[in-house]
Write a protein that binds this DNA or RNA. Structure first.
Lengths: 186, 186
DNA sequence: TACAGTGATGACAGCAACTGACATCACATC
DNA sequence: GATGTGATGTCAGTTGCTGTCATCACTGTA
């Protein structure tokens, strides 16, 4: 029983995404996910805090990507530009995984509970970005405002990019959206 | 049994807030809320979709307030200024109910699940504001970006205002934050 | 080789959130 | 006073999630 099969987390993640796509999030039971992964329900909850969290395993990576980018930017660069650069990096990462990103987005868009979880991840991201800015000497409320405004740009850009009619790549959409924000507030 | 007692919703809301403050959100059971309100668990779920929703009964009112304000603003006013004015109106409303706002915020801050619900309410608000702007002839992505940026300002301002050390009133904090956003993006 | 420790998992019991179906009571309207 | 309507009670059931303990694979050590 206790034999160690590789990739328990990975198998759970795959099984969950498949079932969420096939049957919908609500119709999928944790027992079903575990069964498809060849594990038990109890084991699922040892790897993920709840039924939703399994879709957000990669969120930490993206956050690190953004924070590292901000941290690596020279202090002479304006805060808003540091955030803009970081967002473009994240955009490149997501652009390279467009298919998976769209699949994931489809599942999330179909369920309000998943949207909540998505929003809290983005909120954490904003906090982390503000913290990174503070680490570079930016004071409040500029740090929080810049981070929040940057995330606002990211949200709008991402939503635009998800549209099948959109031909620009995500980093470009992000650049354009940031430019639009500057225009709006002028 | 079926006798009609006034304010079933109101009684549930009061009972829930009291219990959330006394025992914490997690420790409070729906059965307990219903009992304190003199109702049954089943009836609770007839009025509120879930255990969290009872804290957000007034969200619809605030949304209407904001949307109406945007709609009433003459089309000659720049979108960002229309949003700014609307936010100040909402700020006045919340300032007048500061005690209740802080109580509610304390409960929400103490629980991640409630934070998620709060964020989705704000996201809906952003959508509604963008829609209102579109109704005034503003095109995408300016409408969404302006609404999202406005909400970003509101979030930061609200968080600042909640701080006991803060002496400014909410509308003023909002004005100052909006000015800060303009500075940042310049 | 033997043995103790560690880590992942299974098995099982249980709580609480939430739902569906049906009965009941107060009230309004005819 | 019959009849419909709306809010509530009652009850049974599903499912997300947790606590607890036993089991098995693997590791290090003597």
């Amino acid at each position: 029983m206790g034999r160690w099969e590789p990739n328990a987390r990975g198998r759970l993640e795959t099984a969950a995404l498949e079932l969420y796509l096939e049957d919908g999030f609500d119709q999928t039971t944790v027992a079903g996910i575990a069964a498809r992964a060849g594990l038990t329900e109890r084991t699922f909850f040892r790897h993920y805090a709840d039924k939703r969290e399994v879709l957000f395993g990669g969120a930490g990576f993206l956050q690190d990507l953004l924070v590292d980018s901000v941290t690596a930017t020279p202090a002479s660069v304006a805060p808003i530009d540091a955030i803009a650069t970081a967002l473009e990096h994240a955009g490149t990462f997501l652009q390279e995984r467009r298919a998976h990103s769209l699949q994931r987005q489809a599942v999330i868009e179909a369920n309000p509970l998943l949207q909540e979880r998505e929003l809290i991840k983005l909120a954490r991201l904003a906090s982390a970005l503000a913290e990174a800015l503070r680490g570079r000497g930016v004071t409040e409320p500029t740090a929080s405002l810049t981070a929040e405004a940057g995330l606002a740009v990211f949200r709008v850009a991402f939503e635009t990019w998800v549209d099948p009619a959109e031909t620009r790549e995500l980093p470009q959409v992000i650049r354009d959206s940031m430019a639009a924000l500057r225009t709006i507030t002028t």
